[in-house]
Design a protein around this nucleic acid. Structure first.
Lengths: 342, 342
DNA sequence: GTGAAAGCGCTAACAA
DNA sequence: TTGTTAGCGCTTTCAC
């Protein structure tokens, strides 16, 4: 492979001049520049980014850490992130963590050792102290869908508690009496907040909270399926369920059908995320919607600002996004309203 | 940030010894080794991968090039690839190309300049000559879902022509007379082969091929929607449609409903890919299934062999995968059979 | 078992 | 405008 010295020799100039043509073309006379460019093209020369990174201390690479690319939420986020960074000449180094805190830590360590210019971390289980490892290396990062009190950390956050509250309240208003909850992995702040929102809604309406009606799932389809079966076994049929994400909601609906019940007739379901599929399944899923692709964009832009800033210290932001309730069929709201008013 | 020299000074040894502890612990006496390890841990030292890469000429990074992460096909593939490579200590550098040949070329160039150890390229529009750029740099790569005659190229390939043939033949056997086709972008070999399979099936059954019944879409939901509207406008209602991928099939079904027709009653639909959603929508989508996650795994393993091989030349493989027809509701086969036999 | 030193390919400060 | 040269942080010969 050709390197910069070879090019410089062929063009009859110094390596510095070749480097200038590459990085500051205007500082080289037109004549020399053209000669160098010609050699570069003839030789199909492409500079070695690794060597460049070693001197510049920049890699034009961003690390993206997500729990599981198979959850349609994350491709949307990844697309948002990539759409921003591709334009600026950055690549994305992707890692799945499978909701495993150990693996999360290992990924971050790998990405840091590869000297990414920035990091976007989705739904992490890391402690505040662990973010210090990143901060200490002066690598800017953004937490996406996760929240940390520390004011020195960038956050793009949906108000999950509110979303869960809205979902549960909606079920209460529709007249359901026994409302179960399938939660996500409990080492995630996101899951805890959704549970809190669920509790808050119950409490405000004078419903009794019963933790036997709360089952934890793995955020995937099969987890929802399993969780629903557990609920049926343990407590019998609830009227309604608020499920912490759409994927599990789909699994739960499947399990409800398998058990011989109908949705929403026997059990109403509300999910969370509003993934594309939600409006395609039967019955169409009532869910909490938040602008996932846009959150990816937002996090990326926020990070980009921090990456490009020369100053050591730059302003950190916490961006909150308000979720919305999307009423479709699976919550049986329409039917209920008729019942209530007839 | 601590570097290897600092560690060596603190441990009272040379940098070479620290490097040995890191890479060949057994060549260092236990006493020295422990002392070095202790310093490393105290300082939270993590070696700089960039510097390491510059000397070793290996980055432990694999480039993955896909058209669009929002098509659920590709997260599955990405998961397969990552599952293999994560275990071996590699990271994945991900690029979306948006089915754009220019962007594909640019991505490959970027990834090569970042010195990835290997490359997995999905559904490319590159010419044979362009693969030589990669070969010349001695970077092993695998084509996934694409095919090139050159015997010196690794390929993991579904027999798309056969799949399309199966889909179309199925519609013919079900008794449909006017069968349209929504194809993918025609700069993709995959799309061309599917069209060929469609033609072959028509031809063998004595149907006349009419290219006015073939509309090209963008492989996304909206593309299917649009394509269907075009067909209706141009040629009126066909009996059935074979759609080149499931995403477009979903869009087409939507458009059919909007136009006031039913699926499969008025227009039968068969897709291609068998993405998860296919079995969740209403009507459930009849489609051609191929083991996407497994293809990702397979491509990754194949690449891994090539990456790990010290020898310049290693055996290249072409792995063919046979697709299968998955009959669900959208093709109306059941109804037809009843009609035919009653 | 350990250390000294060359060098990976590039950038950037300084000199000319 | 151009060239010389010192690193960037590591691995890897080659001595000892």
């Amino acid at each position: 492979m050709a390197n910069i010295r070879k090019i410089s020799e062929l063009a009859g100039v110094s390596v510095a001049t070749v480097s200038r043509v590459l990085n500051n073309p205007s500082t080289v006379s037109e004549e020399t520049r053209n000669r160098v460019i010609q050699v570069i093209e003839e030789m199909n020369y492409v500079p070695n980014s690794i060597a460049r990174s070693l001197t510049t201390n920049r890699t034009s690479t961003i690390g993206l850490i997500i729990p599981n690319i198979l959850n349609p939420l994350y491709p949307s986020i990844a697309k948002g992130v990539e759409d921003v960074f591709y334009k600026k000449g950055y690549n994305i180094l992707l890692s799945n963590t499978e909701y495993d805190a150990k693996r999360e830590k290992a990924c971050i360590e790998m990405l840091l050792s590869k000297k990414v210019d920035g990091l976007i971390i989705c739904s992490s289980a890391l402690k505040n102290t662990e973010f210090n490892i990143i901060t200490k290396q002066k690598v800017p990062f953004v937490l996406l869908g996760d929240y940390v009190e520390d004011s020195d950390i960038n956050v793009v956050y949906t108000d999950y508690l509110l979303g869960a509250y809205m979902a549960t309240t909606h079920l209460i208003k529709a007249g359901y009496k026994t409302i179960a909850h399938i939660s996500g992995p409990m080492n995630r702040r996101v899951s805890i907040e959704k549970l809190e929102g669920y509790k808050k809604a119950l409490c405000e309406s004078g419903y009794k909270y019963d933790d036997e009606y709360v089952i934890t799932g793995n955020n995937q389809i099969d987890g929802g399926h399993l969780a629903l079966k557990k609920i049926l076994k343990k407590k019998g049929k609830p009227d309604a369920i608020f499920v912490a994400n759409d994927l599990m909601a789909l699994g739960a609906i499947e399990a409800i059908k398998v058990a011989g019940y109908t949705v929403p007739g026997d059990i109403a379901v509300v999910g969370f995320d509003d993934i594309d599929v939600a409006s395609l399944v039967e019955p169409k899923l009532t869910t909490i919607t938040h602008p996932v692709y846009r959150m990816g964009l937002t996090a990326a832009r926020l990070l980009l600002d921090n990456v490009l800033t020369e100053e050591e210290e730059c302003f950190k932001q916490k961006i909150f996004i308000q979720p919305m309730l999307k009423v479709r069929k699976s919550c049986g709201y329409d039917n209920r309203i008729e019942e209530i008013f007839s």
